[in-house]
Amino acid sequence: EEERTFTNEEEARKAKKEAEKRGLRVTVTKDGTTWRVRIG
């Protein structure tokens, strides 16, 4: 499991799409101005 943080919503969405392409489970949460993308 890996967690990545982004300040840019577009980049967070891109990371989510890429992980889904690899067949991984992805959770995206917004924490104030930060987007957290949890993969795995």
Rank of each mutant, 00 (worst) to 15 (best):
E1F: 15
E1A: 12
E2R: 10
E2A: 09
E3L: 10
E3P: 04
E3R: 03
E3A: 05
E3V: 13
E3H: 05
R4Q: 11
R4W: 15
R4K: 11
R4N: 05
R4I: 14
T5M: 11
T5L: 12
T5S: 08
T5A: 06
T5F: 13
F6E: 00
F6D: 00
F6S: 00
F6M: 02
F6N: 00
T7L: 09
T7H: 10
T7R: 07
T7Q: 10
N8M: 04
N8G: 04
N8K: 06
E9Y: 15
E9A: 09
E9T: 02
E9R: 08
E10F: 10
E10L: 11
E10S: 10
E10N: 09
E11P: 01
E11H: 05
E11C: 08
E11Q: 07
E11K: 04
E11V: 03
E11M: 06
A12F: 07
A12S: 03
A12L: 04
A12D: 00
A12R: 00
R13K: 11
R13A: 11
K14Q: 12
K14V: 09
K14I: 11
K14W: 10
A15T: 05
A15Y: 15
A15E: 04
K16N: 01
K16T: 10
K16D: 00
K16V: 15
K16F: 13
K16G: 14
K17M: 14
K17R: 13
K17Q: 14
K17V: 13
K17A: 14
K17F: 14
K17L: 14
E18A: 08
E18G: 03
E18H: 06
E18Q: 08
A19D: 02
A19I: 07
A19C: 11
A19N: 03
A19G: 04
A19F: 11
E20G: 03
E20S: 03
E20Q: 08
E20A: 05
E20W: 04
K21P: 00
K21H: 09
K21M: 14
K21T: 10
K21V: 08
R22S: 07
R22F: 07
R22K: 09
R22C: 09
R22D: 05
R22Q: 11
R22L: 12
G23E: 01
G23Y: 03
G23H: 04
L24W: 07
L24R: 05
R25H: 13
R25N: 09
V26H: 00
V26S: 04
V26T: 03
V26P: 01
V26M: 02
V26I: 03
V26L: 01
T27V: 09
T27S: 09
T27W: 09
V28G: 01
V28A: 01
V28Y: 03
V28N: 00
V28E: 00
T29I: 14
T29A: 06
T29C: 09
T29N: 04
K30V: 10
K30S: 13
K30H: 13
K30P: 04
K30Q: 12
K30I: 09
K30L: 11
K30W: 15
D31L: 08
D31S: 08
D31A: 05
D31G: 02
G32P: 01
G32N: 04
G32H: 03
G32F: 02
G32W: 01
G32D: 06
G32T: 03
T33W: 06
T33H: 12
T33C: 10
T33N: 14
T33I: 10
T34D: 07
T34H: 11
T34R: 08
T34M: 12
T34W: 09
T34V: 15
T34K: 09
T34N: 10
W35Y: 06
W35N: 01
R36M: 08
R36Y: 14
R36F: 13
V37A: 01
V37T: 01
V37M: 06
V37K: 00
R38K: 13
R38I: 15
R38W: 12
R38D: 06
I39H: 03
I39T: 05
I39S: 04
G40D: 13
G40P: 04
G40L: 15
G40M: 14
G40K: 11
G40V: 15
G40E: 15
G40A: 13
